[in-house]
Each structure stands twice: as C-alpha cells, then as structure tokens.
Design a protein around this nucleic acid. Sequence first.
DNA 1: GCAATGAGCGTC
DNA 2: ACGCTCATTGCT
Length: 680
Amino acid sequence: MNAKTGARKGERVPAESLPVARIVVDVPLAHLDRPFDYSVPSELDAAAVPGCRVRVRFAGQLVDGYLLERVETSEYGKKLAFIEKVVSPEPVLAPEIATLARTIADRYAGGMIDVLRLAVPPRHARAEAAAPGEPPPLPQLPAWVPASAGGEPARSQLPPVPADAWSRYPRGPKYLEALHEGRPAHAVWQALPAEDWPARLAEAAAAVASSGRGVIIVVPDHRDLARVAKACDAVIEGVVTLSADLGPSERYKRWLSVRRGVARVVVGTRATAFAPVRDPGLLVVWDDGDDLHVEQRSPYPNVRDVLVQRAHMTGAALLIGGFARTAEAQLLVETGWAHEIVASRETLRSVAPRVVSVGDNEWQDVKDPAARTARLPSIAFDAARFALADSPVLIQVPRRGYVPSLACGQCRGPARCRRCAGPLALPGGTEDGLPKPAYCRWCAATEAGFRCPTCGSRKLRGQVIGAKRTAEELGRAFPGHPVRTSGADAVLTEVPGKPALVVATPGAEPVAEGGYGAVLLLDGWALLGRADLRASEEALRRWMTAAGLVRPGNGRVVVIADSSLTPVQALVRWDPVWHAATELAARTELGFPPAVRMATVDGTPDAVNAMLDELRLPPTGEILGPVPLGDDETKERALVRVSRAEGRQLAAVLAEAQAVRTARKEQDLVRIKLDPLEVL
DNA sequence: GCAATGAGCGTC
DNA sequence: ACGCTCATTGCT
C-alpha cells in the first residue's frame, strides 16, 4: 500500500493536479474527430505536457495521439482509461497550431488528425535529443507598440527598413513600415516584370524579424525556395528552410528548431504554412495560383487559405505575392480584407518588356525557311534571332500529357455545357460508325448541337499537342546555338547570360543571369484549352512567370495565341489586376468559386448516392451529377455547390454525412474536396 | 424465470 | 481489438 494514495503497489493513480488529459487520437474515422478524456497517471504527471505525443488505449488498441490540454475534471461520466505512455515530453503541437488544425479541418470537411499529419513531421528521436534546446533571448522590444504610441517609440532602436526597392510600388514603403511596427496588414502584391522578388520578400521579412517576431514564407518549389533562402540569408540571420525532401532526421531537426523558437524566419514549400513559428508577425505566399500550393493529402488544404486563416487567428500580417493575380486574391482585395500593392502604369510602362501576340495559325504564311523549320511566326523568329546576339532566349512549351477536352473549332475557346457550363468531352468509341456526341464532364448531358457562344461556330476541335517536337525543331532553326532543356525530368535552376536556346515547360523555367533577351511562349491555345475553369488564369500566370524572367528594359516577349483572348490581352498590357477582376466577374456570373463554394464527392456510385441522400444541404445547396469519374468506370463524381455565405455550413454537413458513414462502418467511403482545383 | 452464449457496436 | 449491451437459446 502507498501511504499517501491508498493504492496498491504497481497500481496507477491519477495525478494530483489536473488529472484529466484531453487527447486527439490518431484514428482516421470521421465520427471520432473530437478529443477524448484520459486519466494522467501520477508517474507521467511531469511528462504529460500540453502538445506532447502520447500512446493511449483506444477501443483496446494502442494508438498515437496528441495531448491538447490538462484539465481538472471530465464531462465523460464513466471511468477514464489511463494514458499508456508519453512518447516524448517535447510539446510538438503548439496551441496555435492545434487551433489552426481544427479550423482548417472544419473549413475542408476533414478531420483534425489529418491536418496534424500535414502540420507535424514524423518524430526522429535522435534529432530530438541532438537539437539545441534553448531559444535565444527575445529582444527587449515591445513588438506591438506602434510608432505613434506615446513618447519616443521603440522604432528608433530598430535597424532602418530597407524600403527603397519597394518604393516602385506606391503603397510598398507604407506596407513595410506597417510590418516593422507589427500591424496586421494584409496585402496582395503584383511584382513588376523582371522584379527581384526574392529580394523584396527578404526585405519584408527583415522588417518583421528585426522586431523579434517570426516570419513564414511559402513558395511553390525548390528552385524558388533556394532563391528566397539566398536572398533572406543576405539580410537576416538564422533563416531556416523546410521542405519534404530533406530526409526525416534533418527535416525534424530543423522543424524542432522552429518549434523551440531558435529559428524565427522560415522559408519552405507548402507544409511550411503550418510551421510553428513563435509569435508570427508576417505570413507570405508567393505565386498563390501555383497548384503546388495545394496539399495532396486529405483534407487537401491550400497554402493561401491556411495563411489567411492563420493571419486572422494570430494577428500576423499577410502578403500574397506573384506576377499574376488569382481570382481568390482579387476577392480578398474587393472585399477590403487586403490592400493591393501594385506599381503605377507609368512605372510599369518604363520597365515592362514589349509583349506581342501572334495568332497560332499565322506562322503558316511565313516565307523564311528557317522560321518554317521552327514552325514560328516570323515576329517570334526575329525576336529570338535578335536576342541571341548577346543573350539567352527562353522558349516556354506546354507539358506533354495534357488531357484537354474540346475547344471551339473556330476561336479555340473551351467548349462548355450549355446547362451547367462544365467542360465538354468526347466519349471513346463510335456509335453506328459515327463518333458519339460530346457530353458534359460535370452533369453528363449530351451535346449534339454545339454552338460556340463567343463566335457562333458549330465546329468542335479535339486538341493535340506537338510541343516537344516543336521544341526540337527550334534547335535546327538556330544552328550554332546551344539548346538546353528544363522540364519534368531535369529542371535547371539557372543559366548563364550567354546566347543559348532554353526550352522549358511551365514551372521549370530557369533564371538567366542578367535576364533573357527574349521569351517565346508557344502553343498558347494548348494552355488555354485545358478542361479547367482556371485555364485562362493559369495560362496568364505561367506566361507572366516566364515573361518576368526577361531582361529589364529592352527584353522582348512573344506569345503565340489569339490576341482577342482575355489572358493574351492581359499579358500584352501587363495587367494582371484587370485580368483577375474580369476572371472573378466571370466566375461570379457562372457560379464558380471563389464566388460560390463547391465540393466534389468522389466514390463508387452507391457510396456517392448514399452520401448525397445523407446531406442536409443549406438553402442555396445544389447538386450536379454524379457523372463517371475519368476513365475509371467504377467511380463517380458529384458536385455540390452553395453560396459563399453558406460555405462553412457546406463543410459541416459534408463532415457530418461522412461521420454517419464511418460510424456505420461503411466499407466504401467517399473522398471530399472543397473548391478543388481540377473543377475550378 | 433466468443463466449461458454470441453478435454488434462504441471506442474516454 | 477489447469489453460492453442486448438478443437468443436452452434448461430448470
């Protein structure tokens, strides 16, 4: 007997203080997505701290979990089980990240534990033991005191804000000042062409870091990560980079240095949006339209959304930057949630490259045999030849393996369903020797009598890509110049500023020393014809990202696409804001995100139908489909759409219906995605 | 009338 | 994968 507790030897007794632990358990069932109460045995009292990893017996099995908080009593009513083990007293789950994970789970109709899987990297015991433990002392500066608040402000003790380069944008210096003073300023920034944007982001980060607060910068890929890290290292000490491919040990080590407050400025790829930076003062996402910013694991959150929520929760400032602007960012500007940071038209005129567009049929009239070999319009050919005298030329060609659907045979705009505006596609096979009529990939309606709403043509065109061959032919058209390629297999980061042809697929364009003399954007119609509502936005984003690498001043950009198309005009005028506003208006008209909230429900026909029956949709709720999902005959997809105001409710009813199904131990479950890119 | 057995379900 | 409830069964 233990004299103090009255317990027999070896018997566990609850801790004296705060004996109840609220635990989120690692089971992937929607109906178990809530905390469970456990008893903290006295011997684990010291180790069982909020945020630590634990092992608990749950329905007989030992499962992993996170301890959210210690409390005095439980509402459960029955006898609590004891925590079996504290894996490590390291409080890996910061309270802010726990709250964020709950918020994101609710937003995306998923489970908190799924979000935590994205937010907290797997433990590596040796890295945990080896990593430095003590954070450096915080600067003795009141991060929150604005410059104007009484007496001489803390500002005078801070290093000056390096705002010069930001002064090309009228609101730029003010924004950096706001960052420096710790105000929760939200901004959408469109970088000027050829802007050294990694340097600008580093300056913004420095403005915040100098006041002792944390910074998160999220970029799409490793090449951007390397550029931003280099720029940050030049102006800030102790910058940490995070990415999934570091390997478990190094990744966990660096992540822990962030969690422990040793590192305060973090640059990384998408999972970095959840990095537990202490006292975050600035959250940045660069090129928020890149689909690499969408997590590929359930519940498929998007970096921009995560950072918007996080800024909202913590009072951190937010910066959404890019050459182009997404409709989502435009909505943040139009609703007044974010200010825009853009250059004046005068500034733009003085630095913008000359962009010309050429219709994609016009090259056929070309007389020049070399230009014919390259299958280039002479204007593009001449621009390349001129630039090759002293500089590299970038040629952007669409990736192979696109599966575009149908376009208008005349104007090449995407062919859409007249009922729901979904993309039209041709089914395989024939019917009585004739091709089957087109059908809508969303609502399955057949379209026998297509008529283009733009130009009135009745012709449909199946899209073919010959981009790779086009790229190879370019080499022959410019003999004597080296041809380098950058694509999925081998991505180049940087090329020297010497004459060369650089053929790259979108997203793999290397940076050229001193900038490219010319940028040729080929086969625009292939980018524009994707079975994707975002095709136009995506094309402009990719064009601007490539064109942004051009040499400042006298660089030339040639886009091979019909000049009457909105994104082509936006590129020629270098007006991403106009395009985003047009895009948002069009989506509002058609009833697409971000003007409304949509969800896809994928699964076997039975599962999808059962799920839809279960849904207690809000008033504006509307179901499209289900329709067969791609080539997979066994799967179907339904679309659910509600007004933006009912977005939360949509996520809630989807989660609820999913919970009903997991509770029934249904074998075939459905996959839910909110505002998925592939349908936008 | 009631113990013994087993299927189903919730899971602290 | 445990242990609880509740229904069914079989014996007094």
